[in-house]
Design a protein around this nucleic acid. Structure first.
Length: 226
DNA sequence: GCATTAACCACAG
DNA sequence: CTGTGGTTAATGC
């Protein structure tokens, strides 16, 4: 008894390209798991032979570095794959994934995933396309982190949540100030100060974790000039 | 020199 | 977990 991937409304772009047989192979070899906000989905330094497919929810990918310093690599929004690089590239996880909202993930065995890649070029192409876009985003972020100042990076973070993650100018931050600092290589104090500053300057309306963008043009300017 | 930026510390809600 | 104030160090006119 497996899952009916073909009727799952969260089916990925790549899965839609599978034939019936491949689809049922996938359905018979995956398991859906639910995670609460704060739950660890997979952990750095542990062994894994699964690819995750994030069906719903929001996840942070993070890596513990020197002196235990935590760095958030990215915020992953459903639908997307989780852990393709670390599962295919290494047997031991190179980073962790933690739910920052209630989340559901389908785990697919790596062997099955590899068989799909080897047997279906369209599927492989979709995966490559996905990973290329991902890598370009990381190159850009890498550049920004080096070249922008903290204000610009905080502005970027707000814009990312508004434009890409929540698709609304009014949302609740799923991260603490400390986590935002871990995301942009800053300190919790700086993030706190910059957010208050944006609030006082009427660029955003800030109430704890609640953010409403009041002056989008200015925010974009800060992002571009910062 | 003087200004800016931001990290680190401490302490208070 | 946050917000602020003081301090300190680096960098750039």
């Amino acid at each position: 008894m497996g899952y009916q991937c073909q009727v799952c409304k969260f089916s990925s772009f790549a899965v839609s390209v599978l034939n019936d047989e491949q689809m049922s192979t996938l359905g018979n070899n995956c398991a859906e798991v639910y995670f609460k906000k704060g739950d660890i989905i997979f952990k750095q330094d542990s062994f894994s032979l699964n690819i995750g497919y994030l069906k719903t929810g929001l996840v942070k990918l993070h890596m513990r570095g020197l002196a235990g310093k935590e760095q958030i690599i990215k915020i992953a929004k459903a639908p997307t794959y989780l852990g393709i690089p670390t599962t295919i590239g290494e047997k031991i996880n190179q980073y962790s994934a933690t739910a920052i909202e209630d989340t559901s993930v389908c785990f697919v065995n790596l062997d099955i995933f590899n068989k799909l890649i080897l047997s279906n070029p369209k599927f492989s192409y979709e995966i490559i396309l996905h990973m290329c876009k991902n890598e370009l985003t990381h190159f850009r972020n890498c550049l920004y982190k080096t070249q922008k100042n903290s204000r610009g990076l905080v502005a970027d973070t707000i814009l990312n949540f508004a434009n890409n993650i929540y698709e609304s100018s009014h949302f609740f931050l799923p991260l603490t100030r400390n986590e935002i600092a871990d995301l942009i290589n800053s300190s919790r104090e700086s993030v706190s100060r910059i957010l208050s500053e944006f609030h006082n300057d009427k660029i955003i309306k800030l109430n704890g974790k609640e953010i409403e963008i009041l002056n989008l043009d200015l925010l974009i300017k800060i992002s571009e000039n910062g």
